[in-house]
């Protein structure tokens, strides 16, 4: 049973990790907790559903379609809600983020109604025996897609020129600007990448749990935020680690303690990390710029 629960935890954790990456990337560049990120994930789940329902798309097309739509949404959110506040206090941007979050979830309630919708069954579930545990092709698929996306992100950030520019902006925006980097473009790109990952997470969760609803972004966003803080906010490998850790901790909490503690576990971890190691597992100590 231990192995089975571990598999459950890793599957859940990989979806958290996908969402947590967006939080961490945006924070790394503009030091903003993008509270609208959970809602981008929710919109991703819904657009994926639209692709499947309207165009009969397969899973790859649904994920790709949702990713592209949410990239645009992410860029749009940044343009409308954050860029005009550049230079004003960080609190204003944070409040703006909360506003966008509420706006998006109520907008979807208006358009689609509050009820839960399900994804149509896209392929037959096959179970594989791994020692004493069973793993389904869907779980394998979720882990593989998450892994591919995370590796792709790692390559973009570490090996490409834009990646280098992103890292430069994260270190020092003024210096980056002096080097001829268009900081605005890089910020847009960061939002686009983060939102695309959240959208992929949304579609995968929609298929795995077979349920999408307008308020799904709220809790998932909070969990992913905890995961990002746990891993060290601003750190990309940290977000992946934090997401997996949180998913596994939650599943084991339900399995060996009680289901009532599911959310309590996530947030107790958040509080503990903030108390004991505020920089998270892989975060660098924060240096205040003078």
């Amino acid at each position: 049973m231990f192995l089975q629960q571990l598999i459950n935890g890793i599957t859940l954790g990989s979806t958290y990790a996908l969402i947590a990456l967006g939080y961490t990337m945006v924070y790394g560049i503009i030091q903003l907790i993008n509270f609208a990120h959970g809602e981008v994930y929710m919109v991703g789940a819904f657009t994926g559903l639209i692709f499947v329902n309207m165009f009969g798309a397969n899973i790859a097309l649904a994920i790709l379609g949702a990713m592209i739509c949410c990239m645009l949404l992410g860029v749009l959110i940044e343009r409308i809600a954050y860029r005009p506040l550049q230079g004003s206090s960080r609190l204003s941007a944070l409040i703006s983020a909360i506003g966008v979050s509420i706006f998006l979830s109520t907008l979807v309630v208006l358009i689609r109604g509050p009820q839960t919708t399900s994804y149509p069954q896209m392929f037959k579930i096959v179970l594989y025996q791994v020692g004493p545990a069973k793993i389904s092709n869907l779980q394998i698929l979720i882990m593989i897609i998450s892994a591919i996306l995370m590796i792709a992100l790692h390559l973009i950030v570490q090996k490409t020129k834009v990646g280098k520019a992103m890292r430069a902006c994260a270190q020092d925006q003024d210096a980056a600007r002096l080097m001829g980097i268009s900081v605005e473009k890089i910020i847009s790109l960061t939002f686009a990448l983060g939102s695309a990952l959240a959208a992929a997470g949304g579609v995968l969760v929609g298929i795995y749990f077979n349920a999408v609803f307008p308020t799904m972004g709220m809790m998932a966003g909070m969990k992913a935020f905890s995961a990002a803080v746990l891993g060290g906010i601003g750190s990309i490998p940290g977000a992946v680690l934090g997401g997996l850790f949180l998913g596994i901790a939650e599943v084991f909490g339900v399995a060996y303690l009680s289901s009532s503690y599911r959310d309590a576990i996530a947030f107790s971890i958040l509080i503990l990390v903030l108390l004991i190691k505020p920089t998270g597992l892989l975060g660098k100590p924060i240096q205040k710029k003078v």
Binding site: T11, L12, F209, R262
Partner: peptide, 20 residues
């Protein structure tokens, strides 16, 4: 006897326990 909270999405832990 297992429980969950309304609005939960992930029941994998409970189902694994019950299946055993």
């Amino acid at each position: 006897v297992e429980s969950y909270v309304d609005g939960d999405n992930d029941f994998s832990a409970q189902i694994t326990k019950i299946a055993a």
